[in-house]
Design a protein around this nucleic acid. Structure first.
Lengths: 344, 344
DNA sequence: TTGTACGCGTTATCAT
DNA sequence: ATGATAACGCGTACAA
C-alpha cells in the first residue's frame, strides 16, 4: 500500500509506463479508451504522481512564488488575497512561503527556485535594502511589492519594485496634523529593523517637522515593544499606556500602522481621553478596521488592489519578455475621517 | 551560469560527487579540510542543491504541512503563529499552503505528501466532514485543528481532532443573552457551506431557544453575503444595515465571529443605536480586536494557544509512535465585556 | 498507438 | 576518507 509508483499502475493496467504518463498529462497521442481505462485504475488505486520526480524532469511549469516576511502585519493579508486571485486569473500556479524574521528572504528564494523551477518571485515585507551580490544570484525575475526601493541602487535594472513613497506619504499625514494646528505630535513607530518601512515613515515625520522649523522632541518618538508583534493592536496599546504614564504633553498621535492606531485609541479611551476632542489619532495603511472602528481612523490609504495587481502583471510580463523591470511608485491617499481634528 | 549541479561543484573541487554530498549533509566520514574547501567553493559559486532531487532520495525529512482553507478568517492568523513557533521548537520543518475554497483540501494534501515526503498534516479550516474513502488514502497522521468532528464517524481512530464544541459554546452565549432578558436575538451567520462551523453555531442558537420554549423567528437569522469574505467586518456591516432596513424588532445580535461583530457594531452606531444600551452585541472567537474595540466585545474565547500547541504535540507524538490519535474538545470561555447588557 | 530505455540531480551503498 | 555507481519516480525520445 505504501508508495505506489507509475510502474505499479502500468502493471495493473497491463500497459507501459509511458502510456500511463500520457494519460496523466493529457497527451494527444493516446487511444481514448486506453486513457479512460488507465484513469479509472488510477482513481481506484488512489495513485498520486510524485511531484519531486516530476519537477526533476519538467521545465515548463508556470509557477511563481510569494515570499512573505512578517506574517505579523495584517496589511499583507489583503495584498496576498489580490495577488492570489490575479495569479490564478493568468493561469499561473503559485506557492506561498512565510519567511521567519531571522531568515534571509533571498536565500529562501534561492532554494525555492531550485526546488520548484520557479519562473518568478514576489517579495512581501522584509527590508528594502539587499546585498547586490545576493540579488545577482536570483536568475529569475522578481519584484518587491509594497517595499520602497533604496535610492541610488545601480542594479536597479535587475528587478522591479512596486510601492508607495513611504517617506513622502508619511510626511503628508504629519503636514495635515500640523495644518490642523497640532505642534506636539507623538509618533508610534517600529524601530527594530534598521531598514524597515517604519524608518522611512519616521523620516517623513522628521521632514515635515523640520520643514516648519519645529525641533523634533525625541520623547515624542515612541518605539514599539520588540518582544511582541510590532504591528499589533496590543503593541500600540502598551506603547501608548507607557507614554501616558510619562505625562508628556501632546495633542496628536501618528501610528505608522492602523493596527497600532487601534491599540492607541483604546489606551486613550481608557485614560478618559476623547478622540478627537482631546487627542487626534492618525494611522497608516488604510485597512478595513479603520473604516469600522469608532471613531473611524484618519489614515494614509495605500492602493492595495492596484499595487497587488500591478505586481502580478508586471512580473508575468517580465517573465514572458513583454516588459522590462520597472520601479513604480503608487500615490497613497490621505483619508480624513473621525479620529482627527483641531487641538483644543 | 544557469543550472549548476553537484557534478559541476565536484569537478571544480577536483573531488567526487559523494564527497560534495557528504560536505553538504554534515556527514561524519569526511576530512574537515576537504569539507571546508568544498563548502568554500559552493559558497563562491552560489550553488544550491535541487530539492526535488533530494526529496526523491531522502526518507528522513522531518517535515509536516499546514493546510489552511479560507485565508479570509483572521482567527487563523493567531493559530498559525503558535503552530509555527511550536513546530520550530520541536525541530521539525513546516510548509504552509493555502487551499482555495473550491479545492478539496484532502486532494491537495495527497499531492503534498507525495511531493514533500511529509510526516504529518494539520488541517485548518474547511468542512468538518470528509469522505471516509478519501480520509483512508492519507497514509500519514493528520489532525484537524479548530474544526469540530462529525459525530458517529467510526473511522475516528485514523486521525485526530482538536476543537471547541461549537454547538455547545454557541448555546452558552445565547443562554447568557437570554438570562440577561433578551428574547429577540438576531444571529449573523455564515451559511454557504453546509458543513461549516457556522452551521454548528447556528444549531447552538436553536438549542438555546428551544430549550426555553421560544420559537425561532427565521427573520432573525441573518445570512451573511456570500459574494464577499464571510468573516469580514464589511460583511457584518452590510448584513446588519440590510437587517435594520427591514425594521424587524430585536434587542441583541450574536455574530458568529468577532470580525463580523465589529461590522455589526459600526452599522448600529451609524444608525444612532447605542451599545449595549439600545442593542447588545456578542461575538465569537476571542481575537484581539474584541479587547481593543470600543465597546469591548463580549465573546466566546477559544483557547487558541493551548489548542494550537496541543495540535502540534499530538501530531508529533502520533508520528513518533508515542501516542494514539485523539479527539479533544477544549472548553471555550464566555467573556463578558462592554458590548452586552440588559435589554431596555 | 504503444512500449523500451535513458536521463533529470541527488543520496546511499559499496568498494577502494 | 574518498570515489564510482545504483537507485529514487517520472517524462520523453525513439523504436516498434
Amino acid at each position: 500500500m505504501e508508495e505506489m509508483t507509475i510502474k505499479d499502475v502500468a502493471k495493473k493496467c497491463g500497459v507501459g509506463v509511458s502510456t500511463v504518463s500520457r494519460a496523466i498529462n493529457n497527451h494527444p497521442d493516446i487511444n481514448p479508451e486506453t486513457k479512460k481505462m488507465v484513469m479509472d485504475v488510477i482513481r481506484q488505486m488512489g495513485y498520486v504522481p510524485n511531484n519531486s520526480a516530476r519537477n526533476l524532469k519538467r521545465v515548463d511549469a508556470k509557477c511563481i512564488a510569494v515570499l512573505i516576511k512578517g506574517i505579523t502585519n495584517p496589511f499583507f493579508s489583503a495584498v496576498i488575497q489580490v495577488i492570489e486571485a490575479e495569479v490564478q486569473k493568468k493561469k499561473y500556479a503559485m506557492v506561498m512561503q512565510h519567511v521567519e524574521a531571522y531568515e534571509n528572504e533571498l536565500e529562501v528564494a534561492l532554494e525555492l527556485i531550485k526546488e520548484k523551477r520557479l519562473r518568478g518571485i514576489i517579495f512581501l515585507g522584509g527590508t528594502y535594502y539587499h546585498d547586490p551580490k545576493q540579488l545577482e544570484k536570483l536568475n529569475v525575475p522578481f519584484v518587491f511589492s509594497t517595499i520602497g526601493t533604496v535610492q541610488g541602487d545601480e542594479r536597479i535594472r535587475t528587478y522591479s519594485n512596486i510601492a508607495v513613497d513611504d517617506r513622502v506619504e508619511s510626511r503628508k499625514m504629519v503636514d495635515y496634523l500640523l495644518d490642523l494646528g497640532h505642534r506636539r505630535i507623538a509618533i508610534v513607530v517600529e524601530g527594530t529593523a534598521a531598514e524597515s518601512v517604519g524608518q522611512l515613515r519616521l523620516e517623513g515625520y522628521r521632514d515635515a517637522l523640520s520643514a516648519r522649523g519645529i525641533d523634533v522632541d525625541e520623547n515624542l518618538i515612541l518605539e514599539v515593544r520588540d518582544k511582541i508583534d510590532p504591528y499589533s493592536m496590543e503593541n500600540g496599546y502598551k506603547t501608548m499606556r507607557e507614554f501616558l504614564a510619562t505625562e508628556t504633553e501632546f495633542t496628536a498621535v501618528f501610528a505608522i500602522a492602523d493596527f497600532l492606531a487601534v491599540g492607541v485609541c483604546r489606551a486613550l479611551y481608557e485614560a478618559g481621553l476623547r478622540i478627537p476632542e482631546d487627542v487626534s489619532v492618525a494611522g497608516y495603511d488604510g485597512i478595513p478596521i479603520g473604516k469600522f472602528y469608532t471613531p473611524q481612523l484618519t489614515t494614509i490609504c495605500q492602493p492595495v488592489e492596484a499595487m497587488a495587481k500591478k505586481t502580478v502583471t508586471l512580473l508575468l510580463d517580465v517573465i514572458s519578455g513583454k516588459a522590462e523591470h520597472e520601479h513604480i511608485t503608487f500615490p497613497a491617499e490621505l483619508i480624513i475621517r473621525e479620529s482627527t481634528g483641531k487641538p483644543k
